[in-house]
């Protein structure tokens, strides 16, 4: 038996919007730790890892570890039917091939339940090694989204380079080139607008912009994004979910042969 009650149901709505374009179907894993997911996109270039810790739920009951295969498109359709202020409860019985999403309005005058069919999905978990990153950039998530969107209109790939001067995002396409430099800016009064660069070594890596633009769908989840880079390693783009966990995207680089 599984019963997870999330007062801030909008978090789950935002999570689905953040991952449904990258991954079609995925297994959600439920354990005492929390509600989690790890899945690759169909071309195996990007990987998304989601964790919603059990402590973040109002009520969290998970009698035994469960893995539930879901179509993220269909799950997003169902969660779109929840109001932004609704309390969302996820329920499943042992051995059932369905999951129920219950939506309660804040004043309890409207209660809806949506039952969704589960599916069998073959998926393998990948071991993500602990890594010391050469450079970690923390910046406003809206700024990162804007940069990826703007560069995506000019080129297909972004070169991210971190130096003492700041972080530079560059692209080139048929119409020309673009470079955007963000310098460290530790706004004390508005921490959500800060750009903080921790650099052990200068690092330059190349990535496909369409994935970066897909990751930016997580922008409504967090005011800040953390980008961790090391030469010849996948970049980690992390959006923290307040009090609950995170959505982390890993993207394999493009490497000159």
């Amino acid at each position: 038996m599984l019963e997870l009650r999330l007062v801030q149901g909008s978090i789950l709505k935002k999570v689905l919007e953040a991952i449904k374009d990258l991954v079609n179907d995925a297994n959600f894993d439920c354990s005492a730790t929390g509600f989690s997911l790890q899945a690759m996109d169909s071309s195996h270039v990007a990987l998304v890892a989601l964790l919603l810790r059990s402590e973040g739920f109002e009520h969290y009951r998970c009698d035994r570890n469960l893995s539930m295969g879901m179509s993220l498109t269909n799950m997003a359709k169902m969660l779109k039917c929840a109001g932004n202020d609704d309390i969302v409860t996820i329920k499943a019985d042992d051995g059932s091939d369905t999951i129920t999403f219950m939506f309660e309005s804040p004043t309890q005058d409207k209660i809806a339940d949506f039952e969704m069919k589960l599916m069998d999905i073959d998926s393998e978990h990948l071991g993500i090694p602990e890594a010391e990153y050469e450079a970690i950039v923390r910046m406003p998530s809206s700024e990162f989204a804007r940069i990826c969107k703007d560069l995506g209109t000019i080129g297909d790939t972004v070169v991210i380079s971190v130096t003492k001067e700041g972080v530079k995002f560059s692209t080139r396409g048929d119409i020309g080139t673009a470079n955007i430099v963000c310098r460290q800016n530790t706004s004390i009064d508005k921490p959500e607008e800060a750009t903080i660069i921790e650099m052990q070594e200068p690092v330059t890596l190349t990535f496909a912009l369409r994935y970066m633009n897909s990751f930016a769908k997580a922008t409504p989840l967090a005011t800040q994004v953390t980008i961790s880079l090391s030469s010849e390693l996948p970049v980690v783009v992390e959006y923290k979910i307040a009090e609950m966990g995170y959505v982390r995207y890993y993207l394999a680089p493009k490497i000159e042969e």
């Binding site: 690759m40 393998e124 071991g127 394999a252 000159e256």
Partner: peptide, 14 residues
Amino acid sequence: GPKQYTITRFFSKL
């Protein structure tokens, strides 16, 4: 241009 690597090149299956 540079070659797009896959994530499984860096992270192994459990």
